[in-house]
């Protein structure tokens, strides 16, 4: 019987300004072009608009702004990563993240990753931890903290 590789995680590198995020593939519904962002009045600075995706409107988040940085405008190479609804939310409550460049699939093997020192990552409640894979540093978003920020 073939042994299951339980120490491997298929995920996506999500490049943002100054950092790369890593999310498991199971959290991601689709990667799409940016298209037209509709402004949402009275939104917090990190909510940069909404897009029409399939039949629903999806709010789009600038993770850089959520980390306290400047609101990033889409670049020509930017994409939107549409995430499945967070835990406990309705099945239509997808959320999108704006990327700085094309996301890349990654397979991370636990045996070859290293937990970085706290000095390597921004101090923010929205990153659960980080991993180092080779010479690459990835921040792991804290989905529960994001849920609290998105739906107070």
């Amino acid at each position: 019987m073939r042994k299951l590789a339980t120490d491997q995680i298929h995920g996506l590198e999500i490049p943002i300004s100054g950092l790369s995020l890593f999310l498991p593939s199971a959290t991601i519904a689709e990667i799409v072009n940016v298209g037209t962002l509709t402004p949402v009045p009275f939104a917090p600075p990190w909510l940069i608009g909404a897009i029409g995706w399939r039949t629903v409107a999806v709010p789009i988040v600038s993770f850089e702004a959520l980390l306290g940085g400047a609101v990033t405008a889409p670049r020509p190479q930017s994409k939107l990563v549409v995430l499945y609804p967070l835990r406990g939310r309705a099945d239509w409550e997808f959320v999108g993240l704006l990327t700085a460049s094309e996301p890349r699939p990654y397979m991370v093997q636990a045996a070859t990753t290293v937990t970085p020192s706290t000095d390597d990552l921004p101090i923010t409640p929205y990153l659960a931890t980080g991993i180092k894979f080779g010479d690459r540093l990835f921040g792991i978003p804290d989905l529960d903290r994001l849920r609290q920020a998105f739906y107070p």
Binding site: T36, T38, P41, P44, L47, G52, A90, Y151, P152
Partner: peptide
């Protein structure tokens, strides 16, 4: 549609639905 973040009014969010037409909101 749920605008993210705190609601700006005492009666909740200003928007609770959206019309998606040809990709536009």
């Amino acid at each position: 549609f749920t605008p993210l973040g705190p609601s700006p009014t005492g009666e909740g969010h200003l928007f609770v639905n959206a019309w998606v037409n040809a990709g536009r909101v």
